[in-house]
Design a protein around this nucleic acid. Structure first.
Lengths: 207, 207
DNA sequence: CCATGTGAATACATTCACAGCA
DNA sequence: TGCTGTGAATGTATTCACATGG
């Protein structure tokens, strides 16, 4: 069966990283084989859903046995294109920027911060972890030069749209946006939005 | 029409905070009235979807005119129960914990950190912003005493499940989880998961 | 015999399109 | 007229249930 030419719903793509995360955890526990059943219990999706999601991309399991963890892990990494490491630009050297710069969970999952930018003259030139904070004026050129395709926006909401526009001009293709505002970008540019308060608000509804 | 007795899909609840965010922004710009079309353009959902989502809760607009921003804003705040401020426990005083403690965007949207906990003896007793970091041993009692119903987990993945268990014992009803791992909690406890790397991975698929 | 992979069936979510009212 | 609110129609996603093959 040819799978690669089918259209895969975005909601399926959104679950793959969670499958990958669970597999990596299982591998770290020394496990070699798992099943859609076990993943179901660990993740809270139905086993049928997990099997169907994977079936968009190929046949990764063995009937009667389950999935060889390392093999499926590698397959998912290739599908998601995180078998190599992506370099990212981080915009915003405030508290959140610092937390992201110091976060050591990126690399193992396919990402690395390559440059940090800020608009505050007080911060420019100072070190944040291993990086020297660069002025916004250098963003476009650095991003182009270093062939950076991903960026993280960690600036106040009021500045976020302007930053997004500059990132797009620099050729950025995907943005992880921590500012609590919607960004307007060309359709070819992907945006993933993180708003903890929105998450909290959708939980308080039920309390 | 009686709306309050219908079942509202969770996916609808998840969008309400985004509507609320957009309305607050419009109000800050001095606007008094908006329409489902305008919100549609700002947020990227269809205007029909916005109207239908709101219709689960009542009739908030005027035909031919649109929505009075302040009125709809207040209505959404009540629906989401963020017309009063919720106190939260923050577990984890690392870089992420510090960023969350210093974040000034909580209060205006209905949340406030009331206590911070950490397991590291080096950190206990030291100040993080306005808070003195408390030991994990005090978590259950403090949470009960201060009637805290929400918590943020900002600890490494390896510690997250244990922390979640203690939070549940303390009577916490909703958890914002920053640890990149699935939490197992009783069904009455809500969990909202934030995993920036999962977000990045679902974007690199398309690049 | 066990767990996958997958069409068919069901359930859920979105969009259409228009009646109805300011 | 202009925009809401909403049944009906369409489109998506999930689950069922079983043939298949290790």
């Amino acid at each position: 069966m040819s799978h690669s030419n089918r259209h895969v719903p975005a909601i399926v793509i959104g679950r793959l990283p969670l499958y990958l995360r669970a597999l990596t955890q299982l591998a770290a526990e020394g496990r070699r084989v798992t099943s859609s059943q076990e993943l179901s219990e660990k993740l809270g999706f139905s086993s049928a859903q997990i099997r169907k999601d994977l079936s968009y991309f190929g046949e990764f399991g063995k009937q009667g046995t389950g999935y060889e963890i390392e093999y499926l892990e590698r397959a998912l990494r290739e599908i998601l294109q995180v078998h190599h490491v992506w370099e990212m630009a981080l915009v915003g050297g405030g508290d959140l920027g610092r937390a992201l710069a110091n976060y050591n969970g990126f690399e193992a999952r396919g990402f690395r911060i390559a440059a940090i930018f800020d608009a505050d003259p007080q911060k420019i030139g100072t070190m944040l972890g291993a990086w020297k904070i660069q002025p916004m004026q250098e963003l476009r050129e650095t991003v182009r030069e270093k062939k950076i395709h991903l960026a993280i926006i960690a600036v106040p909401a009021t500045a976020a749209q302007q930053v997004a526009a500059e990132l797009v001009e620099g050729g950025i293709r995907a943005i992880l946006n921590y500012a609590p505002t919607t960004l307007s970008v060309p359709p070819k540019v992907k945006v993933f939005h993180i708003d903890p308060v929105a998450g909290l608000q959708s939980m308080t509804y039920y309390l």
